[in-house]
Design a protein around this nucleic acid. Sequence first.
DNA 1: CTGAAAGCGCTAACAT
DNA 2: ATGTTAGCGCTTTCAG
Lengths: 353, 353
Amino acid sequence: MTPTIKTVAEHAGVSIATVSRYINGFGSVRPANVERVRKAIEELNFRPNVIGRSLRTAQTRSFGVMIPSLANPVFAEAMAGIQEGAKEAGYTTVITNTDYSIEEEPVAVHAMLSNQVDGLILTVTQADDNLLLDQLDSEQVPYVLLYNQTDKPGRCAVSVDNVAAAREVAERFLLLGHERVCMVTGRIAASDRAEARRRGFLDGLRSGGIDHASVVEVDFVNMDVTEVLHSLFASPAPPTALFCSNDALAIAVIAALRTLGIRVPRDVSIIGFDGISIGELIEPCLTTVEQPSREMGRTAVQHLLDILSGEATRNMVFLPHRLRTGATTGPVSDTAPVVLQNPKHHSQKENKT
Amino acid sequence: MTPTIKTVAEHAGVSIATVSRYINGFGSVRPANVERVRKAIEELNFRPNVIGRSLRTAQTRSFGVMIPSLANPVFAEAMAGIQEGAKEAGYTTVITNTDYSIEEEPVAVHAMLSNQVDGLILTVTQADDNLLLDQLDSEQVPYVLLYNQTDKPGRCAVSVDNVAAAREVAERFLLLGHERVCMVTGRIAASDRAEARRRGFLDGLRSGGIDHASVVEVDFVNMDVTEVLHSLFASPAPPTALFCSNDALAIAVIAALRTLGIRVPRDVSIIGFDGISIGELIEPCLTTVEQPSREMGRTAVQHLLDILSGEATRNMVFLPHRLRTGATTGPVSDTAPVVLQNPKHHSQKENKT
DNA sequence: CTGAAAGCGCTAACAT
DNA sequence: ATGTTAGCGCTTTCAG
C-alpha cells in the first residue's frame, strides 16, 4: 500500500533519520534535503506507519471511549464533543459500546488497553463501587468518567449535578400543583446517575411535604413501558406528573401513554432528563433537564489531557444544567380522572436505545 | 501498567516464544508449561501489547469507519451493526465522522490508513466520481461503501435501491391523490443517495403524469428549513405532499411546518427516508422508507471480511427496503388552502444532525 | 516441545 | 546537519 520510511530515504538519497526528522519537525534538516524528502514522500505517496511510531514512543495518541450505546442521542452528542476535542489535540478515539451490559465493561476496557490507548473516557454503570475502576486506579491508568456521579475522592468525573437537577424537577412539579407524582427510570442498580436523580427528586418532593412518591423501574433497553404504565394508571389515584430519568425514556413513555389514551400534558405532565435535540422537535416538545453533552465530552477530553500531562486535578467536575421548559408540563388539572384505554396490541417490538 | 511478554516468560521460567505460542494457541506447549504461563499471566495481570503484534504481523485486526455524523440516528444504528459484526469477527473499529464536510474525507481516510486499519467502511458524499476512492482502488486498499449508491463497476457498496424506493414514494403520493408534490432534500451535490432518491421520485411522478414537481434543497447540517418552507407554502398553489430525503430532515420539517401553522397530514402529507426508530414514537408517527440499517452495517462488515479473505465479490449489494406507513400521510384534502402563519421567531439555533 | 534470534517501521541517542 | 544504530513488544522461522 504505502512504502516504508526506508524506501523514502533511499528515494530521497538521505538516511531514514533525516526523513523522520522531516516528518516530525524535530531537529533540523537542510533546506535542500527538506525539498528532496518532501518530493519523495509525495511521489511515493508515503504515509508514516503509526504502529511503528507507537511501538517506539510507547504512546499511541489515542483515547478509548466506552459508552452504553450510540443509539441514545445523548451519548452520540457527547461523542461529537469528544471527537472534536480529541482531534484538536491530535488524538484518535476508539469507541466501544457496552449495550448497557455490565459484563461488557471489563472486556471492553481491557481490549482498549491492549490497544495501548493513552487514556480512557468511560461511562460505567456504577462509579462508586467498581472493581474495574479500582484496578485502573491501581494500575495508574489515566481515565475520566463521563455522566457518572461519584463521591469517591480522586475519581475524576465530568457530569451535571444530578441531585440538584432532580430536586429542581420536583420543585417544578410542586409549583404546578402536582402532588401525585412518580418517577419512571431504568434499572437504578445499573446507573449511578439514575440513583442520584432519584435521590434528588425524592428529596425535593420531601421538602415540599410529599413523602409517598413512587419510583417505577423499567427495562430501559427493551423499553417495554406500556405494561408498567398501564398498571400505574389503573390505580384509583394515578399520578398527574411523571419524571423520566432520561429523554429517550420520556419519549417512549409519551408514545406509550398515547396508546393508553392518556394525553400529555392534559392528563399527565412529563419531565425528562438530557436535553437531546430531538426533544425540541417533537409535539408536544419535551420539558427536560438539559445537560451540555457536547461540552461535557470536550471537558472530559480536556481533563484527560491534563491528567496525561501531569496537571492532574483528579476530582468531579460539574457542568451547569438547565431546566428547559417545553410543552409536556402544565398545572395539575381538576378534570375527571383519566379513563384508561386498553393498550393497542402494538406488538411492542425490541427497540434498543 | 501491564508487563511485557518478556517479564511473563521470566516469571514462568520459559522463553518468550513459548508464552507467545500459549497466547495465540498456535504450536503446542507442554501441559506443565501451559499451567505455568497461565499462572504467570494471571499473577502479573498481563495483557499482550497489540501494537507489538501488529507491527510484526502487519495487520491490526481493525477497521476504519467513516460516516457523516453520529448525530443522525440512521448512522448510529448502522454503527451498531458494524460494531456487532466486527466484534464477532474479532475486529476493532475506529470511527471518524466528517460532519458532512467533503474536505474531511481524505483527511479522515488517510489518518485511518496511517493507523494501519485492515480495511475501511465508508459513507462518502459521492461514490461515482471520487478521487479518494480512485486512489484507494489504485492502492488496492480494501473498502466497502455503505449507503452510497454507485454504478461504477468493481466498487463495492451496501445500500437499498434508492431509486426504486423513491419511485414507490411517488406512487404512494399519487395513489392518495396528490398532484402538487415536492421533494425537500439536503444538498444533492453532497449526496449520491439524495440524487438517486430524487431521480426515482421524479421518475415515479412522471409515470403518473406529473412533470412539474419541484425539488428544494436545504442546508441539512444547520437545518434552517423554516424559511424555505415558508416561501414554498406562500405560493398560490402550495404542495400537498412532501418527500423528505431522510427522516431527520422530515422531523425537522414537521416541526417547522408546525410553527407555520401547517398541520400534518391534514394540510400536507410527509414521507421520510431511513426508518429511524424515533420516527415510530413521535406524533403523528412518520411514514417513511425503512432501511435495514443495522443489517446493512453487518453486511458491510461481512463483505469487507470476504474481500480481505480473497473471496472478493466486488459489487453493489442491495438490501430490501420497506415503505412503512405511519400517520403523516393521508389523501389530498379539498379544504381551503393553507393559511400561513408568520414563523415564530424561534431563534433557529444551530442544530447539527 | 522449546529456545535463540531476526526483524516488523519507526524514533532518539549518539557520533560525526 | 546528518547518518548509524539500538531497541520498542511481539511473532515466527529455524535449530535443537
